[in-house]
């Protein structure tokens, strides 16, 4: 019983700093999944850009071969050294770079976008919702 009482108290007390974090922390999460994280764009915005988009597929080669956005270039962290030079050969600097992976839960697109910006390809946007967002609009 003592352990339960103490545990309940700990659970309650932890709510205090948690509430402050939820209200004031500069890196607190957005409460709605619809809120865009830094660098993200919605599929509707990208489609509005028309032909001025260079799609980057951050998924595995296997997933890319099954299906990908027409004109997308495969570029993942796993094979970066091999794929990045190929991307540079094909990249038209006039086009906006948009990276996607499988879904919102996938972090790979953010990692690839970050790497692209580090290597001088800036800005590199991330498609909110990834491949799933593309398929739902198709």
């Amino acid at each position: 019983m003592r352990a339960l009482r103490q545990a309940s108290l700990i659970l309650l007390v932890a709510l205090i700093p948690a509430s402050l974090t939820a209200t004031f922390h500069p890196r607190r999460p957005p409460w709605s999944e619809e809120t865009l994280l830094p660098g993200e764009v919605r599929i509707q915005t990208v489609l509005a850009w028309g032909q001025d988009v260079q799609w980057i597929d951050a998924r595995s080669a296997k997933e890319y071969e099954v299906e990908h956005v027409p004109g997308a270039i495969l570029l993942n962290l796993e094979n970066w050294d091999q794929l990045f030079p190929q991307f540079l050969d094909q990249w038209n600097t006039e086009k906006k770079v948009v990276v996607y992976c499988s879904s919102t839960a996938c972090e790979l697109s953010h990692e690839v976008a970050e790497r692209l910006q580090k290597d001088g390809v800036s800005p590199a946007y991330v498609l909110k919702g990834g491949w799933e967002a593309w398929k739902s609009e198709e």
Partner: peptide
């Protein structure tokens, strides 16, 4: 769902530190 994950993300770290 996202909302629940967001709530956990602000609460769990403090629970871990306190415990």
């Amino acid at each position: 769902p996202w909302m629940m994950g967001a709530l956990v993300s602000v609460y769990l770290p403090w629970l871990e530190m306190l415990a």
